[in-house]
């Protein structure tokens, strides 16, 4: 039997710990998301980026709003899973039907026009039979605002992006700083 030296032990421990640290990078078997598939996340990213676009300040995508949604959809918002899953399918169908392309491949103008139609229930076709497109849109819009303006602890508002945009100081007085 091989006798392990102290140095070997340290090396093996380090190797184990090292690989353990890599595990959270791959959260589920499906990809890097708890709820979304990679394709869903791609489309959702394109949607939220239109809802709060990047200008001289980062928009919803960079603020990690998708991460907020993904995290909440397996937590507090478990009850909205169906609306997201079915809604995104209908969303893709409608977009394909109208433009022959996926939403993320459209130019900015077309994206905004399409979202406006979605918001106002003006998409034709049979697609939206479970619930109206406006219902889906309103839910996504509300969650986008929560993800962008809510506390970073819920997965969005990365690095307090929106608070910095609004120049809402992080209070430094003890007892006032648990934001």
């Amino acid at each position: 039997m091989k006798a392990y030296t102290r140095r070997d032990f340290v090396r093996i421990s380090a190797a184990c710990t090292g690989s353990l640290l890599l595990v959270p990078g791959c959260r589920s078997k499906r990809g890097r998301w708890f709820f979304f598939t990679d394709e869903e996340a791609l489309q959702m990213g394109a949607i939220v980026e239109c809802l709060i676009p990047t200008d001289d300040f980062p928009g919803a995508k960079e603020a990690d709003v998708i991460n907020f949604m993904d995290k909440q959809l397996v937590g507090y918002y478990r009850r909205h899973q169906n609306t997201y899953r079915v809604g995104l399918t209908r969303f893709n169908e409608s977009c394909m039907q109208r433009y022959g392309k996926n939403f993320n491949e459209l130019d900015e103008e077309k994206k905004n026009i399409f979202l406006k139609l979605l918001e106002e229930n003006k998409l034709d076709g049979e697609s939206w039979k479970e619930f109206s497109s406006a219902e889906f849109f309103n839910l996504v819009l509300d969650h986008t605002m929560q993800g962008f303006y809510g506390s970073p602890r819920h997965g969005g508002n990365k690095d307090y992006i929106s608070y910095r945009m609004l120049q809402l100081d992080y209070p430094l007085i003890i007892g006032r700083n648990k934001y």
């Binding site: 809802l51 676009p53 300040f57 928009g59 905004n112 979202l115 819009l141 609004l166 120049q167």
Partner: peptide
């Protein structure tokens, strides 16, 4: 508008 550039501009301009 409830979203888009108009939303962000309004939020930034009038929050305070």
């Amino acid at each position: 508008a409830r979203w888009g550039k108009e939303h962000k501009d309004f939020q930034r301009e009038y929050f305070k």
